[in-house]
Amino acid sequence: MHPTDVDRTPETPETPEPAETPDARRDHGTPGDRPVPALRARRPRPGLHDTVLLAVLAVVFGFVFWVADQVYGPLLLALGPFGGFADAVLGGAWIVVAPLALFILRRPGAGLLAEVLAAGVELVVFGSPFGPMVLVSGLVQGAGAELAFALTRYRRWGWGTFALSGVTAAAVTYAYQTFANGYLGQDLYLLRFAVLVVSCVLLSGLAARALGLALLRTGVLDNYPVGRAR
């Protein structure tokens, strides 16, 4: 049936996978922020192993996002006219997967990709009140969360960086929402931003690191970059 197939020698996997490189480039977009050679040299080719983990994290958090969407409705009604604030209060929970993916994989682009995949799962599998634009939100949120790590050149993984990641995520996300959700020109514009920053620092940045450390303790991350780095 396919006589030649069995003995085919596989391509030597020297070229980095195209999936990861564009995202990585995007994150190094800030002037003076070149890719980190040390990191590249240690991990020559991001493997299927990492990609599957990203996808599974995306799916689990897609599920968690969907549950959050279910919480969202009642909370909106409870808050009445200030329902928009629910956006800000829960805002961080939507972004937790990006810093968590970065914590585990320590690789440029991991956060962005995880967040976009999670948004994609939310859209295609569960449906989202934000429509296909949830993909753009995912991209923006992932980029925002990843910005802090790009600024520290993917070299610092302490609490500070993760807190900063919450701040950058909030800033970038809010800039996008100002137009996409039409917050521009509303009363309480800055207060809403402040709430979002707090939410992102707590529910995204710090929560991701705490969750990552707890996972690390269980041993399931031993064969991922964070486990190797110990």
């Binding site: 085919r8 192993h49 996808a55 599974v56 269980t218 064969n223």
Partner: peptide, 23 residues
């Protein structure tokens, strides 16, 4: 989450053993 991460590792091994990404 722990269960999912464990499963992710096994799934990655299974996918790779089936020749995904090898040409």
């Amino acid at each position: 989450l722990v269960a999912a991460v464990r499963r992710a590792e096994r799934t990655a091994i299974a996918l790779e053993s089936r020749g995904l990404g090898s040409g």
